[in-house]
């Protein structure tokens, strides 16, 4: 697809910038706006030794870890909520195959803000946790004036590549969200290269009609990939719910590495890309997620 801005590209072109060993940020929040089509694309390409900096997430970091693409991951929060602990992350952390850089909300907030501002580190309050003990490079005691509250320095976070998912974009690359933006814009300001998947492309007149939905203006986006159901099995707020049945299949398949490899071979490493993935999930199942029927 040729567009005036050249930002709308196919999945393979967008992901070609991701090299082994890079630091990759992931946006969204738990099951919301997980950039799964981009994650599946990275796994199909077989990238290795990534360092992940995920916003509080679920299946996106978990799948990359389970696929063996990750050397180390920051962990602010990685959870499957009511479906339990993140299965592949849990196995990797407990066996020590992936190094965990323990972080908290203030750590990622201060680190991203420093990254976005081109400052070497951010200052956050020392909240009396064990985080500095297990992640001494991520939390350093700051020198403060006598009588000041104790503070910690957190190094700037500047991901080489950031993966996001929004609901729709125009051809200039303005990305609109129908739900909350979470850390996505701050991460986009801090990252060196931003790839955003969207479920659909809309005319720029549609974007202008509701400009307040534009959470990621085009200046903060390098590449847009159009992937319907690109957040599946998570939800794309306002468009489709998370797929509880498939998430349960995923959790069951994650009981051991052999079983999870078989899941990946079926759904991700089959050479067919996203069209094949959508076929595997099935049109009826996907359509049901857009009905609102799965909402509580």
């Amino acid at each position: 697809m040729k567009t005036s801005s050249g930002k709308i590209v196919d999945l393979a072109t967008a992901l070609s910038v991701v090299k082994d060993g890079m630091t990759v940020g992931i946006g969204g929040w738990i099951f919301h706006g997980q950039p799964m089509a981009l994650i599946r694309g990275l796994i199909a390409r077989g990238v290795r030794d990534l360092t992940l900096v995920p916003a509080p997430g679920s299946v996106a970091p978990d799948m990359l870890i389970g696929a063996g693409c990750v050397k180390e991951t920051a962990c602010v929060f990685i959870s499957f909520e009511h479906l339990g602990l993140a299965p592949n992350f849990r196995r990797a952390a407990q066996s020590g195959t992936v190094k965990v850089l323990e972080m908290d909300g203030p750590g990622i907030a201060g680190g991203l803000r420093a990254g976005a501002c081109d400052l070497p580190y951010g200052l956050i309050p020392d909240l009396g946790t064990d985080l500095p003990k297990v992640n001494p490079n991520g939390y350093r005691k700051a020198r403060v004036q006598e009588g000041s509250r104790p503070l910690l320095e957190v190094p700037a976070i500047k991901p080489d590549v950031l993966l996001l998912h929004g609901q729709q974009a125009d051809e200039e690359g303005n990305v609109q969200y129908f739900g909350a933006g979470y850390f996505d814009l701050l991460m986009a300001q801090a990252a060196k290269h931003v790839i955003c998947s969207v479920d659909r492309i809309v005319p720029t007149s549609t974007v202008r009609q509701s400009a307040r939905l534009t959470k990621i203006p085009s200046a903060f986006v390098d590449a847009i990939v159009v992937t319907p159901f690109g957040a599946h099995p998570g939800c794309s707020p306002g468009l489709y719910d998370q797929d509880e049945a498939h998430l349960k299949t995923y959790v069951a398949a994650s009981r051991d590495q052999k079983s999870f490899d078989s899941y990946l071979d079926t759904f991700v490493r089959n050479g067919g890309g996203e069209p094949a993935y959508r076929d595997k999930i099935g049109a009826q199942a996907l359509a049901a997620l857009t009905s609102g029927g799965a909402a509580p």
Partner: peptide, 21 residues
């Protein structure tokens, strides 16, 4: 032990700040 936990939990997220502040 954090380096080799018997059970790996989800993580801290905002709990540090909310308990602390």
């Amino acid at each position: 032990d954090h380096a080799k936990p018997r059970l790996r939990g989800p993580g801290t997220v905002g709990i540090s700040a909310l308990c602390g502040l």
